[in-house]
Design a protein around this nucleic acid. Sequence first.
DNA 1: AACGTTATCAACCGCATGTAT
DNA 2: AATACATGCGGTTGATAACGT
Length: 314
Amino acid sequence: MRKPDLMANKDIKSKLRKGLWSPDEDEKLIRYMLTNGQGCWSDIARNAGLQRCGKSCRLRWINYLRPDLKRGAFSPQEEDLIIHLHSILGNRWSQIAARLPGRTDNEIKNFWNSTLKKRLKTNASTPSLNNSIDSSSESKDVLCGIMPFNEHDIMTMCMDSSSSLSSMHAMALPDQFDPFPMLVNNNQCDMTSDASADFLNMPASCMTQIGIVEGQQGNYGMLEPNKMGLGRGFSLPSLESRSIESNSVPIDVISHNNHHFNYGSFNSTDKIQGSKVEDLIGIGNHGQGENLKMGEWDLENLMHDVTSFPFLDF
DNA sequence: AACGTTATCAACCGCATGTAT
DNA sequence: AATACATGCGGTTGATAACGT
C-alpha cells in the first residue's frame, strides 16, 4: 500500500509540464530568480508558479536564461580552446565550459558533437588536428605529443590530491605551458544592457546561489582532489574559489579573472547589498574547488607559470 | 512546391554524488 | 547505517530549421 504523500507526489509529477519552455514560463522564472534568488529548485518551480520540475527549471536557467550567457556563434579562439581542452579532458563538458565564459556545458557539447567533431574528422589528413578527433583516449595525444610528459603523467598529477600544484611544479613545466587556458573575454556581459542592469540589482546571495558569478569565468585549471578517481573524474576549480579562504585574506578576486562585472577590488569582509563578498564571488558554490584553501594554491606563482598553450593563438 | 536528408540545439533521462534526517 | 531528497553531469532524443534534389 502506497503512502498518501507518495500518491500526491505522483499526481503532482504527472501534471508537470515537459518540452519547450514558453515565453511566459521564461518570464516567470527570470522574474523569480532576479527577485528572490534560489533556495531549492523544486521550491523555485513551485513558488514561481511553474508547472515544471525543479530539475527542468535549473536546466532552463543555467543553459538559457542566465544573464551572463553569451549567445551566438563560437569564435575561432573559443573553438581552439574547446578542441584543446577536449584533448585533455575528454567529454568533461562542465569542466570545459568552466573555461569558456558565458558558455554552457550543453552548448559546448552540442557544438562539439554537431560541428567540431565532424570538422576534425574532415581535416583528418591534417596531423595537427587528427588527434583531437572523437574519443578522448585518442585525443589526449595532442598534449602528450607536445609536452614532456605523457597522458598518464597528466592524469596522475591531476589525481594527486595532496598537491596538485606542487605536482605540476615538480614536473618542471615549461614557462609557457598552461594545461588549462582560460579564454579571456572582456566583453561578454554588456553592463549597459537592461538585462545586466537588472542583474546588478539582484541580491548578492542570489548570485551565489544561482551560480552566476563563479564557474563560468575563470577556472585557472587545477584539479579538485575530492572528486578524483570517481566516475565524473576531476574538476577545475574556479579561480575565485581558490583565491579566498573565507574572511582571512583580502584579494582582488575580480581583477584576477577578467570578470564580467567590474566591481574592482574589495576586501572579503565587505558587503554588497547585505551579502558577504564570499557569497558574491561564489565561494562554496557549484562544486568546483569549494574546498580548496589558500595554502593549497599559490595563485601568483601559478599565474606566472602559465600563459598560453603553444598551439593556441591567443 | 513537395519531399527527403542533414544539422542544430533545447530538453529529457538516468546515474552518481552530496547532504540531511 | 539507511533512506530520501537535491543537485550536477554526460548521453541521448526529438523538434525543427536549413538545405538539397
